[in-house]
């Protein structure tokens, strides 16, 4: 009756809404948690203390060097054809503008192909990308490479339509990368509305002039920590079932959705198992990653530190795509392991979350999966996820306690059973 007991406790029993309530206190107290910030330090201290108070085992911090970039004062104004205040959010790792700002004519393009075709028009201009949202995975390259591609053709700055599937004039930030040998130009995201408006103006042949001022600063890498807690296995304590989410977030909103929800259902999995007095045969280890938003920085260092033990990692699980209404798990592993996952997911029939999809996804677990460790990621209703992602809208208001209960039940049943089965998943 263990699966039923976990579901009952998480969804109907004393623990219902606990992950939501814990997350609300955490996010309301700490706020956003950008890599290198004092807020992130406070978040890690908070969690270290909370996990100890919860009675979990081997609570400890593992040091990591993470990027330290800070947003400064940001301001953008359309000057021609009319005065219009443009909502912007500088992109992570962007350089600042000169103190006096940049005033330049705009070149609007809808794709990198169009930019390359019109390269001769770009010199000295601010390139505005108005790429359509296809999917996050496909469209996000405009955010990560937009500044580099614009700089290659002589632009002085780039403004990139937010990677968002819906907008109420909200800019959405994110990390971007420069390339060695290519000039570093300031880059920021703008709202879908402003990108489309400038595109319409441009199509009509209207000259657009924008003034941009950004005060970003990049500091030397700073020390942060992956936060770890365990329930030590009773029979094979050296073997690990890893559940995870990331504790860092962007510096806007509260990071409640990305990835507070994933971090707190991972904590909830260990709490539920402890509350039920269960101890699986293998060690159930929770890792709250740091520096995920800068490209899985904490997770990569964790992998380098622990990879010699890779044969003892049974499965790596990460929830980093929301904790809305769950439908199942995405799984990476061989056919035999997938069949086992399907059997385990059948235990979640009482809450109708039984699907096993192809290919787990998670920046922080990819290092392990690439090297043969089975992996799983939570699948939930993503329909509104990119409305809020990396924006001021990522707050507790988008979270739903009942949906988090269901996510916690899935996360706990799956991780517990894999940790308690007599044999590791085949690989």
């Amino acid at each position: 009756d263990i699966a039923k007991a976990i579901i009952d406790l998480a969804v109907h029993g004393k623990a219902q809404n606990r992950s939501y309530e814990r997350l609300a206190v955490f996010t309301d107290t700490i706020g956003p948690r950008l890599s290198g910030s004092k807020n992130l330090d406070a978040a890690i201290k908070y969690m270290f203390s909370a996990l100890q108070k919860d009675g979990l085992e081997n609570v400890h911090l593992e040091p990591v060097k993470v990027p330290h970039w800070e947003r400064g004062e940001e301001f953008a104004m359309m000057l021609e054809p009319r005065n219009h205040s443009i909502a912007i959010l500088g992109l992570g790792n962007s350089v600042a503008t000169p103190p006096e700002g940049i005033r330049a004519e705009v070149l609007v393009v809808a794709s990198f192909d169009e930019l390359h075709r019109r390269a001769h028009e770009a010199k000295g201009k601010i390139v505005v990308y108005n790429q359509p949202f296809v999917s996050y995975g496909e469209t996000v390259r405009y955010r990560s490479l937009g500044a580099v591609e614009a700089a290659k053709v002589g632009a002085v700055a780039s403004l990139i339509r937010s990677i968002a599937s819906f907008s109420i004039d909200s800019p959405h930030t994110g990390w971007q990368n420069y390339q060695s040998g290519v000039p570093q130009i300031p880059t920021a995201c703008i709202s879908v509305e402003d990108a489309e408006m400038m595109s319409r103006m441009s199509c009509r042949g209207t000259k657009i002039v924008v003034y941009l001022k950004m005060g970003a600063k990049t500091y030397p890498d700073s020390t942060s920590f992956n936060t770890v807690a365990e329930i030590v296995g009773s029979k094979y304590p050296e073997q690990i079932v890893l559940v995870s989410g990331h504790l860092d977030s962007w510096d806007v909103g509260q990071g409640a959705m990305d990835d507070g929800g994933g971090a707190f259902i991972s904590w909830e999995a260990l709490s539920l198992i402890k509350d039920l007095g269960l101890r699986p045969k293998r060690t159930l280890r929770m890792v709250l990653w740091t520096g995920e938003e800068q490209g899985g920085v904490g997770a990569e260092q964790y992998y380098q530190l622990h990879k010699e033990n890779i044969s003892n990692f049974d499965i790596v699980m990460e929830s980093d795509e929301g904790t809305f209404k769950p439908s199942g798990l995405a799984f990476t592993g061989n056919a035999k392991a997938r069949d086992i996952m399907k059997e385990i997911m059948a235990l979640l029939l009482p809450i109708n979350v039984t699907e096993v999809y192809d290919t787990a996804d998670g920046t922080d677990i990819n290092f392990w999966m690439r090297n043969g460790v089975p992996g799983a990621s939570l699948r939930d209703d993503l329909s509104k996820y990119f409305w809020f992602h990396h924006s001021q809208g990522d707050t507790m208001t988008v979270q739903d306690p009942n949906q988090m209960n269901l996510c916690a039940a899935v996360w706990t049943v799956v991780s517990y059973i894999i940790a308690d089965m007599e044999e590791m998943l085949p690989r």
Binding site: Y236, S311, K336, E343, A346, L347, M421, E422, E423
Partner: peptide, 24 residues
């Protein structure tokens, strides 16, 4: 260790199914 060094997986799938069913 529950996973043998050569990666063989000694249990049949039917055994594993029954084991998992025990968690209902």
């Amino acid at each position: 260790k529950s996973l043998s060094k050569n990666g063989n997986y000694p249990k049949t799938f039917e055994d594993i199914k029954n084991e998992i069913a025990g968690y209902y």
